[in-house]
Design a protein around this nucleic acid. Sequence first.
DNA 1: CTTTGTGCAAATTCTTTGCACCAAA
DNA 2: TTTGGTGCAAAGAATTTGCACAAAG
Lengths: 132, 132
Amino acid sequence: MDNTSIYLAGFGIRPSVQRIAIMRYLLSHRTHPTADEVFEGLKTEIPTLSKTTVYNTLKLFVDYGAAIYVGIDEKNARFDGFIEPHAHFRCKKCGYILDIPFNFKELISVVPEVEVEDTFIYLKGICQKCKK
Amino acid sequence: MDNTSIYLAGFGIRPSVQRIAIMRYLLSHRTHPTADEVFEGLKTEIPTLSKTTVYNTLKLFVDYGAAIYVGIDEKNARFDGFIEPHAHFRCKKCGYILDIPFNFKELISVVPEVEVEDTFIYLKGICQKCKK
DNA sequence: CTTTGTGCAAATTCTTTGCACCAAA
DNA sequence: TTTGGTGCAAAGAATTTGCACAAAG
């Protein structure tokens, strides 16, 4: 049965075949995919899907707090369906993006003069696999 | 006299008229400019300057550690001549980017399983001016 | 029926590339 | 005289826009 539909509704997002599929993709592929990767991953399942819809939908998810925009990759926008606050690490060699648990509270306190709404922590370096 | 030339040499960067002007621009305009803004700001001073050279040079500066890439603006790459580790805050309304002093050491310690080389902290919200 | 969502094609924008010329070591 | 730097024009790639049709409330 379809709990993705209910999940989306919880964010105030009207479900549609496309939106459900895209959210399902995000939740089952924790790879921080680009819009293109989402499109490629779903075009067999939904042959009529367009890239425009993927772009629209991912933007919608971010606007409604159902996904996180990940700006760690200078070439493409990436998206994360895992919305608990966390940092991201990207390997400079293989490009792999790793979720890093991180408590944002302590960070926000250092900035009293502005009203911080969103926090993005991007770490770059070499991952374990590439180090060997 | 020209200490920018010596400054660049300190990073292992051969000075040229263009490189000196671009670094001077970065150091005197702490606005985290885009490549285009740097180009626009210098084209009167150096009428023969090309955008290609600005792109090449900014990339070179980042590669040699003479400037920081600022990925807080989803539309454009931005650059910072202030290379002490610090965080960035961007106002969602006016787009103003503010430097935030921040000690990165404590952050890196939370990620033992990977080798972090670069840390980027981006904060977004509403600045004081826009709050009023 | 009236608003919202989708998708095609075209446009836009930022950035990179190929190449020829110029400058410096 | 060889390597490195600049700049033009063109290409490339990611994303957005305009618009017509489809779907849902």
